[in-house]
Design a protein around this nucleic acid. Structure first.
Ligand SMILES: NC(=O)c1ccc[n+]([C@@H]2O[C@H](COP(=O)([O-])OP(=O)(O)OC[C@H]3O[C@@H](n4cnc5c(N)ncnc54)[C@H](O)[C@@H]3O)[C@@H](O)[C@H]2O)c1
Ligand SMILES: NC(=O)c1ccc[n+]([C@@H]2O[C@H](COP(=O)([O-])OP(=O)(O)OC[C@H]3O[C@@H](n4cnc5c(N)ncnc54)[C@H](O)[C@@H]3O)[C@@H](O)[C@H]2O)c1
Lengths: 206, 206
DNA sequence: CGGTGCTTGTGAAATCGTTCACAATCTAGA
DNA sequence: TCTAGATTGTGAACGATTTCACAAGCACCG
């Protein structure tokens, strides 16, 4: 499979959301122009994005909402359930554990870990907070391939390395520390202070 | 002020964090190569990024950590305190309210709002949850220019429009809904499901 | 004071991503 | 079957960002 540009993948996620809305609304086809309007882009961009993966539309008509939804789900690997572990049962970790938006999309949180003995054993939604000492064993046993990293930044590198060794190949990182990990582990960062600083810059550069 | 590329601004935030670490560690100068290694980029990229704003370095030596820190803080608008309001005192909103990483950077949370009468009036860290009905008046009174939007996605557009009308010019949006707002309001999205889908794609693409 | 080693600042080249523009193709209707 | 109208798929142009490559500047040393 050839390499797909990062921005294209992000837009596919957006298209998918709108397609689902359109399908729920009973629309059986949709044009690149309509998708573009929903997603804040252009029709040419939509068609180009899709063209990397094949020809899904019908000239003169547009795309079948149902078929295109299925295609994009497959491209994004959403045609299956992913097992997710959360490390750090603090404010962010707890919020993520109870976030229905994940389960809805096939991301099943199968375990949440913490290092604090007072937190370990406590219930959190339908999970019990596990001891991070069992991280590697549990990750393997539960076949988790994605992890959400929600530990303090100075703990992030250590925990991330353990996750990688245990077989996790994708990490959503809420910490602000830079992570050094093996090539085959994909990391996405949710860097809140960085985004606020981008906002600050936009306001300051008026 | 001339327009600066989005990726450049993001990298400046990263450089700033490393510069602060280097300064704390007692280093008085730093080269573009060292900065690049910390930030996972190249020395040419670092120099190009900085060159948009002026010449801050000394050939043969590098950059003064102290001076460059000050310059970047100014470029990013971090040489002042920003008043931030949070709308939605649920899981994400509460987590953000207690997040020290914000205050540390000069982002002071001055109010948090909710629509649920059971939540209004409750204490949250050193704040009291306010009624979202008073949003406009409070935003104006508190001179808030940045808002964190942490309400359910189907409420996001309505609340965002009210924030914009009340004078907020920058929004950090945790919802997954697309927002339509006046041109002069800058929005940054923290779209968790989208990032997980990008991870899913990376795992599926093999 | 001139040589050596290091590092910046920056045009130019290369790469990457978006937009344009249009032939090809489809449906519907006469 | 033929025409009109709509919309896709895609090479090519364009624009933006990154990387390259090197002259110029600075500190240190003998
Ligand atoms: N609170 C927020 O709104 C927010 C927003 C964005 C990013 N973040 C980042 O997310 C991370 C967590 O923030 P938080 O506010 O949830 O902090 P928190 O202190 O509420 O939670 C951190 C949790 O991690 C646990 N922990 C510490 N070391 C651990 C280890 N080695 N293994 C497993 N668990 C460990 C702690 O016991 C604690 O429960 C931080 O890096 C922070 O910068 C927080
Ligand atoms: N929980 C997570 O980990 C998480 C992660 C990323 C994004 N999000 C998104 O963040 C948003 C909030 O998620 P959450 O999990 O915190 O939900 P939540 O239900 O815990 O909190 C939402 C809060 O908003 C309040 N609210 C509802 N309508 C309001 C209005 N019009 N004005 C003011 N307050 C209002 C509710 O009373 C509630 O307290 C959602 O859009 C969600 O998709 C959540």
């Amino acid at each position: 499979m050839k390499k797909i540009a990062e921005p294209t993948v992000r837009r596919l996620s957006l298209y998918l959301r709108f397609l689902e809305d359109f399908e729920k609304a009973g629309r059986s086809t949709i044009s690149s122009g309509e998708l573009a309007r929903s997603g804040g882009t252009t029709s040419a961009q939509v068609r180009k994005d899709l063209s990397f993966f094949g020809s899904f539309g019908k000239r003169g008509i547009g795309y079948s909402t149902h078929d295109l939804t299925a295609h994009i789900r497959e491209i994004l690997g959403l045609d299956r359930v992913w097992h997710v572990v959360i490390v750090g049962a603090g404010r962010i970790g707890s919020a993520m554990a109870g976030y229905y938006g994940l389960r809805e999309r096939g991301f099943h949180v199968v375990a949440i870990f913490d290092a604090d003995p007072r937190r370990v054993g406590q219930a959190l939604d339908d999970l019990t907070i596990a001891d991070v000492r069992h991280l590697e064993a549990d990750v393997r046993r539960l076949h988790a391939h994605i992890a959400v990293l929600a530990v303090p930044s100075d703990q992030a590198q250590g925990v991330a390395a353990r996750l990688a060794k245990a077989g996790v190949r994708a990490i959503l990182d809420f910490s602000t520390a830079p992570l050094t990990l093996p090539e085959h582990v994909t990391v996405r960062r949710m860097n809140v202070p960085l985004e606020l600083e981008a906002l600050s810059h936009a306001l300051a550069a008026r």
